[in-house]
Structure formats: structure tokens, C-alpha cells
Design a protein around this nucleic acid. Structure first.
Lengths: 238, 238
DNA sequence: GAGTGGTCTAGACCACGGG
DNA sequence: CCGTGGTCTAGACCACTCG
């Protein structure tokens, strides 16, 4: 365990357990560094994590304070997210997957360009309906290069592709770029998400990358508008 | 100008001008630190900025590489955004504002709780239609404590509230928490955004904070679904 | 082993806000 | 003035990947 992560976790615990007052600043960086027997730079890095998560804010010349609203609201932080994939995000829920389509094909120009491959490189094309606690939740339309993500089976698709990539293929997922938009529902949405023809859809277009910088997934997640929203924390530079 | 920002900007320039190959790593941190006459920690911080923006990625034991797709797509980075407000985001466009409603009122429970005030504290309630290059773009429904954001005039509402807060009131905006969702359009949307009754809306619910941690704005921005999408860069921890 | 980025140190000075 | 956080330094050792 990295030192700054351990410190960060301990301070987070103290905040959540209300061991620090929300009316006065938490102890200053130098005192905390002394308490945790680390340098001030390391202490700062530990606090940086919590500032990023929206739990703390700093006032130059004053100190570091707790964001009051952060204690009650358990934010799903997406800005610098901890994990990707439904299986990770909804750990307490029962998640099922219905495979709507599973094929190997040559990508069109658009898909190929987002995956940084040619139209001659075969890709998996997967359409999955994800069902959370018995309710249809999201329809995922996913493209992955078949040589990169090899050995996919229907059994894996019924569970978690991300877990397979990490644990069985030993690849490291580095992050993703997303575009979030609203759009009209199409027939496929209506059929599988069980929604009305005038129900909107929240669509997340996503390119995910390995730590090698290689894109491994280009996907469109189409969410029921009443079952999902996206959260983001934005911190401006001074 | 801070040193690491200046270095960061210069490296960004080099990437955009294609002065570095995208097939090999950019120079290592120690060489770059030497070139820019700074310590390695400062160099690292400068590169951190570009990693956050999705322009670079690092491979331990290998080097630091350019994200190929980042050069073409000019991402509007929202994750750790540079600025808030339309006036900043769309600098090249002609932005007009039509004031639909402008009143002072007592907030309901929901608004009060998000602004961390009581229902006895008066707030401005502002509904503005923002028009970009002559096209209706977003309908903003905004609540602000009137004692905090004092001296608002219609003239300011026609231009930029954020700029007024920063430049005239001398307050510093620290960041915001957002929820992004899709929803159905209502009559107000249809009237002002000039959209059909079955057109969806991309709604951004936002609480914005000053650097004091005080919430100063609770707003709902309702966007035409065909004129706006939200982008986010997500970087996972190793 | 050589070279990379990742973490950490023990200081230094600066910028800001308050008394 | 003092105390706060913000930046910066010149090193150190570790973890990882490759030849």
C-alpha cells in the first residue's frame, strides 16, 4: 500500500466518522505530516486525493476544510473514477446480462478509427442487455478488437467483460473518454429496455484504453432515462 | 505564471504542432527537467496536467507517450474543467441571453438544502435562454442567494453572471458538482428551445461552490439534445 | 544492468489572509 | 507579524520492462 493512499484513507475515515469538526479547518499540513510521520509533500498528495473527490477544499491562508454536503451524499465520483463497468459500480445489486447479439465482423470506418485499427481487423460486436435487480437498465453496444480481447465466450458475456480482461487476460485498464448525450429511443431500446416510444435515452459513447494506450473498447451504452444519471465533480484551478 | 503551467503549455504546444513523434515516447522526465531547467518533481507535475487532460499516458519502465486520438479531437475537458459557464466555454461564438424570468423569492426545501441556506433566506430565481450564433441552445433555471450574489442587474444577466461574480464581486469559484440526465421536454423547453414535444432534453443539475466552500448556485441547464453533449475523461488508478 | 516512471524526503521561498 | 497552503528543489530509493 502506498503511503499517501493509506493516509488518505485514514483521513477519509475520520471525516466520515465525524472525528473532525466541519466548522473549523482540519489540522494543518505540517501537523498532519508530523502525526503520520511523512513529509509535507506526501501529506499534500494524500489530501489532494480527497480534494479531487470533493470531500475537502483548501483556503489559502486559512486551512483545509471539510465540504459539509459531501458527508451525507455518497457521491458516485465519475471524474477520476475508481472503476469502470457495471459489475463494479453496483456491487450490492443483482446483475444479469441478456445477450442480444454476439458476432465477429469487420468494423466500419467510424468504429475502426476509434479503436485505432484498420477496417480489415476483425472485431467482436456485442449487444448486451444488463438487468439490475430484475429491471432492464442499460443496452450496451460494444466493439472490441478480437485479437486483443481473445477467448471471449458467452459465459463471460453473461458476467463481466472487464473482470475477464483484468483477471484472465492480465491486461490493465487505464481509463476512458466519454461523451454523454440525450437521444430518442429506437425500436431496439423500446423492445429491450421496455420503454415507451417517446421515452428519451441517456447515451454514453465511450472509448476505453489499456495502460499501453491501446483502445480496446468502443461502446454505446443506452440507459433508461429514469434509471440512470451521470455525476461529475469539477474542480477549477485557482 | 507558474513554472509547471508554463512547461505544461509548451509541451502541449509541441504535441499539437506534431514536434514529437506519436510512435515513440516523448523525452524522459529527467531530460525534460534538464531542458526546462527545473526539478524532476516540477517536470512530473507539468506532465501530470497533460495526463489528466488525456493528451499523454505513461508506461512505467517505458516512457511517456502521446494519445494519438487526442491530437485530432479537440476535447472539451470537463473532468477537471478549466472554466465554468457558457461565456467561457464558447469563446468564439456569439452568445445572447433572453431573460425569461427574473425574480426574488423564498426557496423551497429542496433549493434551500442544496444551497445550504434556510427557506427564510431570499434567493434570486432566474430563467435564461442562451442563444448561440442565433440558435436556441440551453434554458437555464438558476437559484442564487441574493445576499451572497448581490447587485445583479438585467444587464448582467444579458451577459455573464460568472464573470460578474469573479470580476465585480471579487469572489473565487472553486468548482461544482453535477448530475447529468436525460428527460422529456416540457412546455417551457418546447417554447424557448424551439423543440418538438417528443424531443428529449439533456439536463445538467449543478451546485457550484466558492473557494470558501459556500454553495452559490443551484441550477438546471436544459439543453437541446442535438446541440450538446458532455465529455468526461476518466483515469483509473493503477 | 540500464533506463523508465512512481514515490518519498527535508528542506526552501512565495502568496495570501488575518490580527 | 504569523500561520496557512502553493510551488519548487536536489536528491533518494523502489518497481517495472527490456535486452
Amino acid at each position: 500500500m502506498k503511503k499517501y493512499e493509506a493516509i488518505s484513507a485514514e483521513i477519509k475515515r475520520r471525516i466520515m466518522e465525524k472525528e473532525y469538526s466541519t466548522d473549523s479547518p482540519i489540522p494543518d499540513e505540517i501537523s498532519l505530516a508530523k502525526e503520520f510521520a511523512c513529509s509535507r509533500m506526501t501529506m499534500k498528495k494524500a489530501l489532494d486525493v480527497l480534494v479531487m473527490e470533493g470531500l475537502l477544499y483548501r483556503k489559502r491562508g486559512h486551512g483545509t476544510f471539510i465540504v459539509k454536503s459531501a458527508i451525507d451524499n455518497k457521491l458516485v465520483n465519475v471524474g477520476t473514477g475508481e472503476s469502470l463497468g457495471l459489475t463494479n459500480l453496483l456491487k450490492n445489486k443483482k446483475i444479469e446480462s441478456k445477450i442480444v447479439l454476439y458476432e465477429v465482423m469487420f468494423p466500419n470506418e467510424e468504429v475502426a478509427s476509434h479503436l485505432s485499427i484498420t477496417t480489415k481487423t476483425p472485431v467482436y460486436h456485442i449487444v448486451r442487455l444488463r438487468i439490475v435487480d430484475g429491471e432492464p437498465y442499460v443496452l450496451e453496444d460494444t466493439y472490441m478488437p478480437s485479437d486483443l480481447i481473445s477467448g471471449l465466450t458467452e459465459e463471460i458475456l453473461h458476467f463481466s467483460i472487464y473482470q475477464y480482461i483484468k483477471e484472465k487476460l492480465g491486461l490493465t485498464i487505464a481509463g476512458s473518454h466519454r461523451k454523454i448525450r440525450a437521444c430518442k429511443s429506437n425500436e431496439l431500446d423500446q423492445q429491450y429496455l421496455n420503454c415507451a416510444s417517446d421515452d428519451p435515452i441517456l447515451e454514453v459513447e465511450q472509448v476505453s484504453y489499456l495502460n499501453t494506450g491501446t483502445p480496446f473498447e468502443y461502446s454505446f451504452s443506452r440507459h433508461r432515462y429514469d434509471k440512470f444519471f451521470f455525476t461529475a465533480v469539477s474542480i477549477l484551478k485557482p
